[in-house]
Amino acid sequence: MDILIQQLFNGLTIGSVYSLVALGLTLVYGILHIPNFAHGALYMLGGYITLSMMTLYGVNYWLAMFVSIIAVGLLGVLLERFVFRLLRDAPPLHDKIAAIGILLFLEAFAQFVWGADFHTMNSPYGQVVQVMGLTFTLQRLLIIVAAIVVMVLLYLFLKKTYTGSTIIAMSQNREGASLVGININKVAMLTFMISGGLAAIASSLASPINLVFPGMGHLVILKAFVIIILGGMGSIPGAIVGGYILGFSESLGATYVSNDYKDIIAFILLVVILTVKPTGLFAKGER
């Protein structure tokens, strides 16, 4: 029983990280219909920036995370402005390939600047806590709480502010949004900024319990794709729920099925989902 609760807690931690990454991916997909393969590279870059701010400049963890959010967010804006905007009217194949090009570049770039080694990130919250038979580090608790805070803030931003509702409007209907005077280019850049920021938060939170290396985004991005297909491409609640579902199924699968094959669970899940329902679960109408 203790193992079960412990694993559920771990699932919650991993699920929080997945949800944050998937949120960024789904926002961009909802607005621009781009499956951003480079999102994993943004995640990786976020981890590296936080790490170097902490090790090179001795900056506090939260400040380092803030710098990383801004930096990756701005990178997202640049990508929208100089790559994806030029491809807006191109066939869908082109966005995907451009995103793969960016992914390859960013990974080589990280390897060039920081080397191929694995780095550990020391967070100030490494203490081990024991509550009711549960043993965990404070960092894991922090991940869960921070993810919920970020999600609530994002929800409030999207639902309660004017700028936020322009994003929703554009995801519902691009032409309609532009007809009522919404500047589509601005909204697209803003969305990429938020998406990059979310990736940076996720990796800064997750790095202390994982490792920082150039390929750290690979599996995360693939799983984020599984999540947004699970939750419906472009759906925000779907990304959150899907993230937690995957988190739980992985941590339980690792304990009760096989630790070697835990990474395959997500892909099997995806293959099964798309086999049964080719347009993904909760697809919005026939395209």
Binding site: Y29, F225, M233, Y261, I264, V271, L274, P278
Partner: peptide, 23 residues
Amino acid sequence: IALRTKEHFFAIYTLCVGYIIYL
């Protein structure tokens, strides 16, 4: 199975299939 999906779904599906083969 893969060809029941389209566009982005096909790309993501095949990416995952490729990864499963590798694993």
